[in-house]
Simulated assay, not measured.
Amino acid sequence: MFSPEGPTLRELAVQALSSVERGYDLLAPTFDHTPFRTPAPVLAAVGSVLERIGPFDDGLDLCCGTGAGLDVLARVCRQTATGVDFSAGMLDVARRQPPEPTGCRVSWVRADARALPFTPAFDLVVSFGALGHFLPAELPALADGIHAVLRPGGVFALPVLAPPGPGSAAFWTLLGFDAAMRVRNAVWRPPFVMYYRAIRFGALLRELRRAGFRVELYALPEFGRRADGSPRARLIAARRLP
């Protein structure tokens, strides 16, 4: 699963026994050599949809990590792209590998996604692979915070994958991972919040609508369809109502 440049098992164990912030500070130098980095095909597919539903002037990458999503923002935003993350280590790596120049000004801010320090200054907020770091009880505040930093008509975009079926190895792998994390957090402090199945698709849509978004779903055809004909991957595009 990991390249030779990626973290060792010992380094991953130390990270897992740290807080989320400290864990990602430790993982930052090797993060891009792990499967946790958002794959390029996902970034490209999301960028293609955003180009169709734009234009956008100012974008925010929520929980930007080492900056993979900033490449998308620099592609679809005409003025500014801002990355926000609470891990100083991840931001340091992101600053050292900025997006290719497009005329869009890029900046980085260290802050907690649950308490964003921005006015309604963005037309687009994106997030890739960060939802598992929030507990279901935090979802209302997260949705309200994203709503608060978007201008009226602005879009929150979040790619989601269809959950694997109970008969698949992936289903039991994710279930086992979440169970292990719950045991870890029950016996060890500080907690490390990372769950693959804690926040359900329906609950997420309900909270976005409650917060004042009109939610649209776009299939990402690059990833095919399941046996029942539904897309394997979708982009949630939640538009802030006036």
Score class of each variant (00 low, 15 high):
Pro4Ile: 06
Pro4Asp: 08
Gly6Ser: 15
Thr8Val: 10
Glu11Thr: 15
Glu11Cys: 13
Leu12Arg: 10
Ala13His: 14
Ser18Glu: 14
Arg22Glu: 12
Asp25Gln: 11
Leu26Glu: 15
Leu27Gln: 11
Thr30Pro: 12
His33Ser: 13
His33Arg: 12
Thr34Ile: 08
Pro35Glu: 05
Phe36Ile: 09
Pro39Tyr: 12
Pro39Cys: 12
Pro39Glu: 07
Ala40Val: 12
Pro41Gly: 14
Val42Tyr: 11
Val42Asp: 08
Ala44His: 10
Ala45Val: 13
Gly47His: 06
Gly47Glu: 15
Gly47Phe: 09
Gly54Phe: 11
Pro55Tyr: 04
Gly59Thr: 04
Leu60Ala: 02
Asp61Ser: 07
Asp61Lys: 00
Asp61Asn: 05
Leu62Val: 05
Cys64Gly: 06
Cys64Val: 08
Gly65Thr: 13
Gly65Trp: 12
Thr66Ser: 13
Gly67Glu: 11
Gly67Val: 10
Gly69Ser: 06
Gly69Lys: 07
Leu73Asn: 15
Arg78Val: 00
Gln79Cys: 01
Asp85Asn: 13
Ser87Pro: 05
Ala88Thr: 03
Met90Asn: 14
Ala94Gln: 01
Arg95Ser: 09
Arg95Asp: 10
Arg96Val: 08
Gln97Leu: 13
Pro98Glu: 13
Pro98Lys: 09
Pro98Phe: 05
Pro99Asp: 09
Gly103Arg: 03
Cys104Ile: 02
Val106Pro: 00
Trp108Thr: 00
Val109Arg: 11
Asp112Pro: 03
Arg114Pro: 01
Arg114Met: 12
Leu116Val: 15
Thr119Tyr: 11
Pro120Gly: 05
Ala121Gln: 01
Val125Met: 04
Phe128Pro: 10
Gly129Glu: 06
Ala130Phe: 00
His133Tyr: 09
Phe134Leu: 13
Pro136Phe: 02
Pro136Asn: 00
Glu138Gly: 07
Leu139Ile: 13
Leu139Phe: 08
Ala141Glu: 14
Asp144Tyr: 04
Asp144Lys: 04
Asp144Pro: 03
His147Phe: 14
Arg151Asn: 11
Ala157Cys: 03
Ala162Leu: 09
Pro163Arg: 01
Pro163Gly: 04
Pro164Tyr: 00
Ala169Phe: 09
Ala170Val: 06
Ala170Glu: 04
Ala170Tyr: 05
Phe171Tyr: 15
Leu175Ser: 13
Gly176Asn: 09
Phe177His: 06
Arg182Asn: 08
Arg182His: 11
Val183Lys: 04
Val183Glu: 07
Val187Arg: 15
Val187Ala: 15
Trp188His: 13
Arg189Gly: 07
Phe192Asn: 15
Tyr195Leu: 02
Arg197Ala: 07
Phe201Trp: 03
Phe201Ser: 05
Gly202Cys: 02
Arg209Thr: 14
Ala211Ser: 12
Val215His: 07
Ala219Thr: 06
Ala219Pro: 06
Leu220Val: 06
Ala227Ser: 03
Gly229Glu: 07
Gly229Met: 05
Gly229Tyr: 00
Ser230Asn: 03
Arg232Tyr: 14
Ala233His: 01
Ala233Thr: 06
Arg234Met: 10
Leu235Arg: 14
Ile236Asn: 04
Leu241Met: 14
